[in-house]
């Protein structure tokens, strides 16, 4: 199972003074079971890119293939694509609207045309998978804390049983513990449910800690695509395009420059700690 983007271009307001080329010649292959981070400054094309992956935006040119099928083919069901590639928008809790939490999670699968029993089973399972307390299932969603609301919103997408889950800055506006909880949850869904995860994030620390592969977007193009270590090794280039490496990377480079032979590839607190202790022992 995979998503392939083949020379995808997207531009809007073509032929006017406001013409913008939002994506330029994007070639990507997303394999089954990957955990990918997409980084890039505001306006670099991240959101446009992920909206192509579940067919919300149609490429101006180029092709997108989901499990080998051309999604722009007339026979291809976009509805099915959207249930298999779930997209969690920024601040998804703003989209909660039902009178109870349970009904809200039912909304997605209900729209897939499933029978009532299956819908309810899926909602139940999704809420359980995001670790939501059972006693709150039939409460209105509006009194919950920010982090709890976001769990409900993620459950709503999870109830569609997607194979790929794309999350656009899922931790924005949450407190540190809320951030850790949501990221822990996403990582757990990746491991236990085998869902492919694509995470758009502004936090280099989070990306370094969780993902296996980073795609760096800059001015509508893919600037780097590789393992976190390889990408963050280019920290000077990242800075030039308004990004940065995790703070640990800077620390390690400076220690190294002062003659301490620490591991320059360390990007997380855990890795830095191990390397520093090793060198000093």
């Amino acid at each position: 199972m995979s998503i392939i983007l083949d020379k995808v271009n997207y531009s809007y307001s073509e032929g006017t003074a406001y013409h913008v080329q939002a994506l330029k010649d994007i070639n990507l292959k997303i394999e089954d079971g990957e955990f990918i981070g997409i980084i890039g400054h505001t306006g670099s094309g991240k959101s446009t890119l992920i909206q192509h992956m579940n067919g919300l935006i149609k490429a101006t040119s180029g092709g997108i293939y989901f499990n080998g099928q051309d999604i722009y083919d007339e026979d291809f069901s976009m509805k099915e694509l959207r249930s298999r590639v779930g997209l969690v928008f920024q601040y998804p809790e703003h989209q909660l609207f039902e009178t109870t939490i349970f009904d809200d999670v039912c909304f997605g699968p209900k729209n897939l045309g499933l029978d009532k029993k299956t819908v309810e089973l899926r909602a139940f399972e999704a809420l359980r998978n995001v670790g939501f307390p059972h006693e709150l299932f039939y409460q209105p969603p509006f009194d919950l804390s920010g982090g709890q609301k976001r769990r409900v919103a993620i459950a709503g997408v999870l109830a569609m049983k997607p194979e790929v889950l794309i999350l656009d800055e899922p931790t924005a506006g949450l407190d540190p513990a809320g951030r850790d909880e949501i990221l822990g949850l996403i990582s757990q869904m990746h491991k236990e449910l085998g869902i492919t995860i694509i995470l758009v994030s502004h936090s280099m620390e989070d990306v370094a800690k969780y993902v296996d592969r980073i795609i760096v977007m800059n001015q509508g193009s893919v600037m780097y695509d590789g393992a976190p270590k390889d990408v963050f090794r280019q920290y000077k280039d990242l800075e030039a395009v308004g990004l940065a490496a995790p703070q640990v990377t800077y620390l390690m480079h400076e220690l190294h420059a002062q003659g301490l032979p620490v591991d320059l590839d360390a990007t997380t607190i855990e890795e830095a700690k191990r390397s520093i202790l090793e060198v000093l022992k």
């Binding site: 407190d175 540190p176 513990a177 809320g178 620390e205 995790p246 703070q247 640990v248 620390l251 607190i269 830095a272 700690k273 520093i276 202790l277 000093l280």
Partner: peptide, 20 residues
């Protein structure tokens, strides 16, 4: 209290816990 400390403070804390 569901909060955190800056990354460098955290790393310093971890190193201290490990005996440095």
């Amino acid at each position: 209290h569901r909060l955190d400390v800056p990354q460098m403070t955290l790393l310093a804390h971890e190193l201290r816990q490990a005996g440095l």
